[in-house]
Amino acid sequence: MTECAIYRAGGREQVDGDISDALDAILLKDEDAFCWIDLHEPTEEEFKLASEELNLHPLAVEDALNSHQRPKLERYDKVVLVVIKALTYDEATQDVEDGEILVFVGRNYVVTVRHGDIDPLTAVRRRLEGDPGLLSFGSPVVLYGILDAVVDEYVEIADKVQEAVTGLEERVFVVGRGALAADIYALKREVLQMHNAVQPLLPVCNTLLAGGVVRLTPEAVPFFRDVADHATHVNAKIESLNELLPQVLSAYLAQVGMQQNDDARKITSWAAIMAVPTMVAGIYGMNFTHMPELNEMWGYPMALGFIVFSCVLLFVLFKRSRWL
């Protein structure tokens, strides 16, 4: 167990002793209080106490013990399970790392289970404990705090990824050279990872706002609506990036093709120029009985002049046609 606390009347009460005693003696008899239990990668034995005490559904327990779940919302009797993907972004490597948070929301308790090294919950706990007004919303406020922190991080990551995509565009259209295909594919993979985290979260937010799943007070609804708006905004940005990257790749491949055509034309032009002296030298390399320059005083200089004139003429023609 990472941390356990009871919140009543906007304040926090630290749990001393066994959590089971706290739930039986204090929490379950108090309608105005809720308990928040936070677990990090629990084993089956570690999660057994909370699952038995709160009578969690076996399928929900199975999801909690096994990571790599997609974002979703499931309702098991009076308990709601929400799976959220938490993301971080490494600007140095341009890698998006993900973690997983499972939130069990009951009438007067919340159990969070984290998988991975990403921990936004410490900041969420500090924020909620510093705002008694939010804590008065009851157990759903923890779900709101987690969603708000995670979605805000999505927005920041999307902005940074957009900057990286802009940098790639400049390297393609301004520089026009360099091995960028691997960078584009890598960034495409990171955007797809973000899409897999954000897109399934939209129906979760809409379901929460529709009501009937989690008991939301009228005062709490605008906060969840704000999270849904931010999630919709960042999802639209990620979809635009997802569509833009293939276009950047196509533009890069077109630039590479054009550069290869330019190189091929230059090689062809120089080969044509070199063909003239090669041809003349080949003719004079034949085993003639009488060579023209042996009988004519100007024969050899004329042959050299013809070579120079032809090469210069071809160079000028290729230069005018922009092959060189």
Rank of each mutant, 00 (worst) to 15 (best):
T2F: 12
R8G: 00
R8E: 10
G11N: 11
E13V: 14
L23P: 01
I26E: 09
E31F: 01
A33H: 04
D38T: 09
L39F: 08
T43R: 13
T43V: 07
E45P: 00
E46A: 15
K48R: 14
E53M: 12
P58K: 09
A60N: 03
V61W: 00
P71Q: 04
R75P: 02
Y76S: 02
V80R: 01
L81C: 11
V83C: 06
A92W: 02
N108D: 15
V111A: 07
H115V: 01
G116K: 03
D119L: 11
D131L: 05
P132H: 05
E153T: 15
V155I: 11
V155G: 00
A158M: 05
V165C: 05
R171N: 14
V174L: 13
V175N: 12
L187E: 01
K188R: 14
R189Q: 10
E190V: 07
V198F: 14
Q199V: 14
L209H: 02
V214L: 08
P218C: 08
A220F: 09
P222A: 00
F223P: 02
A228S: 15
D229W: 11
H230A: 11
H230P: 06
A231R: 00
N235T: 05
N235D: 12
K237Y: 05
I238Q: 05
I238L: 14
V256D: 06
R265G: 05
T268F: 15
S269E: 05
V276A: 13
V276R: 05
N287C: 08
P292F: 12
P292A: 13
I307G: 01
S310R: 07
L314I: 08
V316G: 02
L317V: 14
F318L: 07
W323I: 11
